[in-house]
Design a protein around this nucleic acid. Structure first.
Lengths: 294, 294
DNA sequence: TTGTAGGCGTTATCAA
DNA sequence: TTGATAACGCCTACAA
């Protein structure tokens, strides 16, 4: 009836902000990761459904300012809960928020002792599946370009890589493992080094799609025909992978759905409803495209 | 001294929320546009600098829910101001917010009568520059894949395209103009039609980079060598363009800086400081890469 | 200078 | 059931 309640007054009275927070891990000042637009739109859509707002802040991962940002949001009760991602193996945010008693959910879960509500994608199983597929196609020299060692997804996916080799009885060759930065540039550089080896790999698997896209670039520059002379695969299933040259084989995860699930869990936990599940798991889907020979 | 003021009380008292809003134009439920991660991180960084928060909501452009979303934010004074982008030629948001007296700034400005504070990128001049470059390389059949006709950037960039042709005395050929959707898929489809013409174009210019990436895909499928048999160019300068096959010629705009400028202007106008400038202009930079022959 | 009271717009509570 | 009232926590204005 044309009446809009004043938000601040309502919040003051009810001691709730009806807002959830997400701190975007922006590495560079000029930061662009297609992962996050899909993630944020999932968070936003689901939040709206529950009449919650979404507060987005940026902070460089593992920096002082990140710590301050989390503290700021938690202290002033600016938000009723937080969504975390890009989890580290040991993650101070889990400790901190548990102490502070601020509800939170995370995409992937750290190894901290704490029964975090989380949505996980099984990177371990995904990578084993990918390795089995590549090995069945006859590949024996399979490289892996990962990310920073303290990332949870790095640990999971790398273990899947190792186990996939072991399952086929292929010896592990440290020469074929590189550390990237989860961005195109890191993949590009790591691939340049791999493609300069005496015995270059016949397949390169990557911790994520951006890394793989950097690999495509490096291969194309060297005149190596991806899908023919070299197989390349990523992880995430971002839209960009449909239109690369050649289109990229990837382990796809339903990012938008994951984000919505996270918000649903978080809102439930804010309203202290009993969660049906504190730990939701998705299986990544292997999408085979021409970058691995189709 | 370990004391954090309560935000709601402060807001209630001061009648300000210290929050600015941005409504992400999410077309599809599953929406991913690299444009926006960079834009949002610029908004977030600059907002933080001024001790403002950033509230992000999603709404499909030009829908009922978009209208409701704007009303909801404006009514409850949930935000002190709004950032707009993806402006239409005539944009009801400009009218509405002017009436409501809610401060706002926009990236690009609509044609509504209103002295909107805005940051603009000169798409007209950019396209003229691009056309001159292509024509100097000997191209005569140059296509244009645009976006929805009501978008301000469509009008600007298309006019630059037309004027660029005219300046060189090349007749305008309606067969070479297609409407895409500003996404990869639309560019892909439009390119398929262009490449099926009796006399195919020797160059395809696109309203934005995503469209151009769709074109690269279509060309690669047809076995057409981009940079050699066909020139392709985009607009925006998203990071992805550095790693396409081949790397993409584009008109780059400093999106992150633009976002920061917008927030700076908006905060100024919220605090009713006199704005130095209500209309900031950037010139796009032509970045020549291999997709146009290097 | 230092201290205190009132009110911002809700909603929860309690009394009628 | 309905209606009045107090309290949420901060800021400002005014009084001492």
């Amino acid at each position: 009836m044309g009446y809009a309640p004043n938000r601040a007054a309502r919040q003051l009275r009810r001691q709730r902000s009806d807002t959830i927070g997400y701190i975007l891990p922006a590495h560079a000042p000029r930061f662009a990761d297609p992962f996050f637009s899909e993630f944020v739109s999932g968070l936003g859509d689901e939040a709206t459904l529950h009449n919650f707002d979404l507060l987005v802040t940026t902070a460089a991962p593992d920096s002082d300012s990140e710590k301050k940002t989390y503290e700021r949001l938690a202290q002033g009760r600016k938000v009723d809960g937080l969504v975390l991602n890009r989890m580290r193996l040991m993650d101070w945010r889990v400790q901190y928020l548990s102490q502070t008693n601020l509800p939170f959910v995370s995409m992937e879960r750290s190894l901290d002792k704490s029964n975090q509500a989380s949505v996980e994608v099984d990177g371990w199983a995904g990578f084993k599946m990918l390795m089995a597929y590549l090995i069945a196609k006859g590949h024996k020299r399979i490289a892996f370009i990962g990310g920073p060692a303290d990332l949870k997804i790095q640990a999971d996916r790398f273990e899947g890589y190792e186990k996939g080799l072991a399952a086929a009885g292929i010896p592990f060759d440290p020469e074929l493992v590189m550390e990237g930065d989860t961005f195109r540039g890191g993949g590009y550089q790591a691939a340049q080094r791999l493609l300069a080896l005496k015995r270059i790999p016949t397949a390169i698997t990557c911790i994520n799609d951006l890394t793989a896209i950097g690999v495509l670039h490096a291969a194309s520059e060297k005149g190596i025909k991806v899908g023919h002379d070299l197989a390349v695969a990523g992880f995430d299933g971002i839209e960009e992978t449909e239109h690369t040259t050649p289109p990229l084989t990837t382990l796809s995860q339903p990012l938008y759905e994951i984000a919505r699930n996270l918000v649903r869990m978080l809102v439930g936990s804010i309203q202290s409803l009993p969660l049906e599940e504190r730990r939701v798991r998705f299986q990544p889907k292997l999408i085979i495209r021409e970058s691995t020979g189709g």
